Simulated assay, not measured.
Amino acid sequence: MTKNINIQPLVDVVSELRAPNGCPWDRKQTHESLRRYFIEEVYEVMEAIDNKDVANLREELGDVLLQIVFHAQLATERGAFTMQDVIDDVTNKMIRRHPHVFPVRGGETDSLSESGNQKLDSSASEAGDTSKSVQMALTWDELKAQEHGEERKNILDGISVGLPALLRAQKLQEKAAKVGFDWTEEDPVWAKVDEEMAEFKEAIQENNQENMENEAGDVLFSLINLFRWYKISGENALIRTNTKFHRRFAHVERRVNQSGRAWGTFSLSELDAFWDEAKVQEK
C-alpha cells in the first residue's frame, strides 16, 4: 500500500493566488478563460507519452492537475463544489462502474470525504452473490446510462461537441457500432473510402467550395471508420504524423540555415534531399 497522497499544498497555493492580495492574472481567470490552457496541457501530456519522456510526463501531469485544482477553486469560491467533491465523485463513479471489483451493497458507496483512508473490504465481502452477478452483467455504458437517468435518452448522447473532430468522429462511430450500426466485414469499409474520395473529386471538378468541404469531411469520416477496423485511433495517428513532420522539417530548416543560402534559391528536389536525410537519421 502506497502512502497517502496529499494534494492540499497545491489547493492552498491556488487559493492564495486567487486571494485579494494574490496574483492579478490568476484572480481574473474564469472557467472560460482557462479552457484553452486545459486543452494545451492535455496535448502536452500526449506529446510526452508519444516521446516516452517520463520526466516530462511527470511535469505535464502536474500541469493538468493544476488546471483541475484551479477550476475546483473557482467553483469553491461561488459555493458550487469543492476539490474534495471532485475526488469523491470520480472515486464513487469508478466503484459503481466496476461492480465486479467493488460489489458494494445496494450499488451505492459512502462519501469518501470523511476519511481519506476509507476501505472497501467490508462492503465487498458483505455483498450477496445474486447482487454481484446482476451487477457484473451490466455493461459500462448501461451503468453510465443509469447514472445520468433522463439526461441521456439517445444513443449518441454524452459525446462532447468540444472534442477534437477526429476523436469525436471515432467515438460517434464506436457508439453506433455497439448497437449494430456497422459493417461486419472489411471490404465495404474500404469501398466506402473509395466512394467518398470519388465524390470529393467530383465536387472539386464542380468547383463548389461548400460541397468540397462537405465531401472532404466525408472522406475523413470514412477514413476514421477504416482505422477503427485496425484498432487505430485517428487522433493519435495524426498527432504522431504532425510530430514527425515537425521533426523532419526542423532538420530541413537547419540544413538550409547551415548553407547560408536563402530558401527561395533551393529547388524542391534539394529540399526533398534534406527531408530524406531526416528520415535516414530516424532509422
Rank of each mutant, 00 (worst) to 15 (best):
29 Q>E: 14
17 L>M: 11
131 S>L: 08
172 L>T: 02
44 E>M: 10
83 M>N: 04
28 K>F: 04
29 Q>A: 06
220 L>I: 12
236 N>H: 14
187 D>S: 07
1 M>R: 08
269 S>W: 09
41 E>Y: 00
272 D>C: 09
146 Q>T: 13
138 L>G: 08
167 L>R: 03
28 K>L: 01
231 K>W: 11
128 G>R: 09
14 V>W: 04
53 D>E: 08
35 R>G: 04
69 V>L: 06
193 V>N: 00
101 V>A: 12
51 N>K: 13
275 W>D: 04
6 N>S: 03
84 Q>C: 06
94 M>A: 12
253 E>N: 08
242 N>C: 00
236 N>R: 09
228 R>A: 03
202 E>G: 04
17 L>K: 05
266 F>C: 09
261 R>S: 00
218 D>T: 10
229 W>H: 07
123 S>T: 06
24 P>H: 10
248 R>G: 01
249 F>N: 07
15 S>K: 09
50 D>G: 04
195 E>C: 03
201 K>S: 07
251 H>T: 09
50 D>P: 02
52 K>W: 03
198 A>F: 04
182 D>E: 14
272 D>T: 12
193 V>M: 01
274 F>A: 00
190 W>Q: 01
21 N>Y: 05
211 N>S: 14
236 N>C: 13
47 E>V: 07
236 N>D: 10
280 V>Q: 06
254 R>W: 00
78 R>C: 11
33 S>T: 11
61 L>Y: 01
207 N>C: 08
143 L>W: 02
90 V>N: 02
91 T>Q: 14
225 N>G: 15
272 D>W: 02
269 S>I: 08
224 I>T: 06
111 S>C: 13
96 R>I: 05
92 N>K: 15
195 E>R: 06
47 E>T: 12
211 N>H: 14
178 K>F: 05
145 A>F: 02
19 A>V: 08
131 S>E: 15
66 L>I: 14
266 F>L: 07
146 Q>D: 11
241 T>W: 06
232 I>K: 00
209 Q>N: 10
269 S>M: 09
223 L>I: 10
261 R>G: 01
238 L>T: 06
60 E>H: 01
7 I>K: 02
88 D>W: 02
28 K>M: 13
40 E>R: 06
190 W>R: 13
202 E>D: 15
227 F>V: 06
208 N>F: 08
18 R>T: 07
189 V>E: 04
110 D>L: 13
230 Y>T: 02
206 E>M: 13
154 N>V: 11
28 K>Q: 11
5 I>V: 14
89 D>I: 10
118 Q>P: 05
170 Q>K: 03
149 G>N: 14
89 D>K: 06
246 H>G: 11
224 I>K: 03
77 E>M: 09
245 F>L: 15
26 D>V: 00
23 C>M: 11
